[in-house]
């Protein structure tokens, strides 16, 4: 057993931010509130964002905060993009499109388990693509389809495809439209499912099974058989014992 427990000098504590509406005067407080808001307050936050739909200057203010955050705190940047997308503001469209098509840096090997610069950019671009797909305009729909078909990153295309299907009033028609334009190796993504879309466990499992019935090439091969354990040359010892 470890001998010495951790000790504390003083406790750095954080108070919960009170619920606050979104306006140009409350952008920073609202971002803090939204980040701290609990999983079971998601709908309440959506309602507060919807209430701010016609507030002036919010989009500019949110993008200002985004520009700072994307250099220092990826989670905060994603949070701000989520608010921007949820606002469904036409004023955000051009900047979301510009973000989605920002050229990625040269891909470098990711260290073990790490997220590369390219990964982080694609996470932000996927969130921006979800924001574009949520905008109820013809231009936004056209842009969503362009991302789904032409974006160089599989993860961003996948986000656009899922969002387009999710928001389409006619699922089958949307599926057929995507099938016409997607890369051939992306076609199977039309058969992907999600637990938030199919929340009945039996239906979700059936959708998983159907995916592999339609795309047996994606079934992983048998795992390599275990190698026999190496012969110990020395008795094992514990570092601390």
């Amino acid at each position: 057993m470890p001998s010495k427990p951790p000790s504390r000098r003083e406790t750095v504590a954080f108070e919960r931010v009170v619920r606050i509406g979104l306006s140009r005067h409350t952008i920073d407080d609202f971002i803090r509130f939204a980040g701290q808001s609990r999983a079971d307050e998601r709908e309440a936050v959506r309602a507060l964002i919807a209430d701010a739909e016609n507030e002036p200057d919010i989009i500019d203010g949110l993008f200002e905060r985004y520009e700072t955050a994307q250099r220092s705190d990826t989670g905060l940047a994603l949070l701000i993009l989520s608010i921007i997308g949820e606002l469904r503001s036409r004023a955000a469209l051009d900047r979301l499109i510009a973000l989605v098509w920002t050229r990625a840096p040269e891909a470098e090997p990711a260290g073990h388990g790490a997220l590369s610069e390219v990964d982080v950019l694609e996470m932000l671009q996927s969130k921006a693509a979800e924001g574009i797909a949520y905008l109820p305009t013809t231009e936004a729909e056209r842009e969503t389809l362009r991302i789904a078909a032409e974006h160089p990153a599989a993860s961003v295309r996948s986000a656009a495809i899922a969002a387009y299907l999710h928001h389409a009033p006619d699922h089958e028609r949307a599926r057929a439209r995507l099938l016409e334009i997607l890369r051939r190796d992306d076609a199977s993504s039309l058969d992907r499912t999600s637990r938030l879309v199919v929340s009945d466990p039996a239906e979700f499992n059936a959708a998983l099974t159907r995916f592999y019935d339609l795309h047996p090439e994606h079934v992983a091969p048998e795992a390599e058989r275990p190698a026999p354990p190496p012969e110990p040359t020395e008795p094992p010892r514990r570092l601390d014992g």
Binding site: A34, R42, E130, G131, A162, H167, R192, S194
Partner: peptide
């Protein structure tokens, strides 16, 4: 895929 495609 994981999660709701809606932005928030």
């Amino acid at each position: 895929r994981c999660g709701d495609p809606r932005p928030w």
